[in-house]
């Protein structure tokens, strides 16, 4: 990993289950993400995208290989301080927010855990930053729209002022107009805070909108890495990526006929 690297992964391997039922979800993945970069991870469901993110974020303890974040070599268990550097946002904002806690408490919790002061000030500022006024402090998740909930989830991740944000399908459950708002928000936050982003998505256009570079995954492995410019020009080196590109361009009878399985 270079000095300015934010994430360095080498030969990451994650398996679930034992013996004959064991599934190798991630099979020798290596990649690096620069400080300040926005990096996309794309691939079909089950290809291992979330599992890579969970290993980086410390949610999964059972992996082998090498994971470094912000220049620090990571062990299976993360030190508390790690979460001040790295935070994660999930697809389903409803499932990830405590249903019986008001926004105020959802945001105060990480501040208390990390012993930071100025709770009120931090909460007001972060709510403003994600485009929600202070009046949202006293609402419960069920009193929010899907887009507002995702803004709260992003606020919760940002309240510790991390340098690295891991986003797992953050707009997949949202209507397209709300997706546009969240993508704009993430882009602005990245610019303002110099954040490094890793965005997992099955939607190539979403990744192109927010990222500089991406990796394509299939069955636990990285098929290829490319720049977003290459993606936009359709210049993929691998047949798997070309098929994915073609399939994401709307219905095409002839294309459907030509698809094959990539083992």
């Amino acid at each position: 990993m270079t000095e300015q690297g934010m994430i360095g992964i080498e030969n990451l391997r994650v398996a679930f289950g034992q013996g004959a039922d064991s599934v190798v979800a991630v099979d020798g993945v290596s990649l690096s993400v620069r400080d300040g970069e926005s990096f996309g991870l794309v691939g079909e469901s089950g290809s291992g995208k979330s599992t890579v993110l969970r290993a980086v974020s410390g949610l999964n303890h059972d992996w082998s290989g090498r994971v470094a974040v912000a220049g620090v070599e990571q062990s299976r268990r993360r030190a508390k301080g790690f979460f001040k550097t790295c935070q994660m946002v999930f697809q389903d904002p409803y499932g990830s927010l405590h249903p019986r806690h008001p926004v105020d408490r959802i945001l105060a919790e990480p501040i208390a855990i990390h012993g930071l002061g100025d709770t009120d000030g931090r909460i007001d500022r972060v709510l403003l930053e994600v485009g929600l006024g202070p009046s949202f402090r006293f609402r419960y998740p069920h009193q929010l729209s899907g887009g507002q909930r995702q803004r709260v989830a992003i606020a919760r991740a940002l309240v510790l002022e991390p340098r690295l944000l891991l986003l797992d399908e953050p707009t997949s459950a949202l209507d397209v107009s709300v997706q546009a708002e969240i993508l704009n928000l993430l882009r602005r936050l990245r610019a303002e805070r110099g954040l490094t982003l890793v965005l997992v998505s099955h939607n190539l256009a979403v990744v192109a909108n927010l990222c500089d570079r991406l990796a394509v995954m299939n069955r636990g492995r990285i098929v290829e890495e490319m720049t977003v410019e290459d993606l936009r020009r359709g210049e993929a080196a691998q047949p798997y990526t070309r098929q994915l590109l073609r399939a994401s361009q709307g219905y095409d009878r002839a294309a459907a006929e030509s698809f094959r399985d990539f083992a």
């Binding site: 107009s177 704009n184 882009r187 909108n209 359709g234």
Partner: peptide, 20 residues
């Protein structure tokens, strides 16, 4: 029009997406 415009597109490199 608003829905169509809010979609990110591979063939359109604009960053900021129009909001409905």
């Amino acid at each position: 029009r608003g829905l169509l415009d809010s979609l990110p597109r591979l063939d359109d490199p604009r960053a900021e997406l129009p909001v409905l």
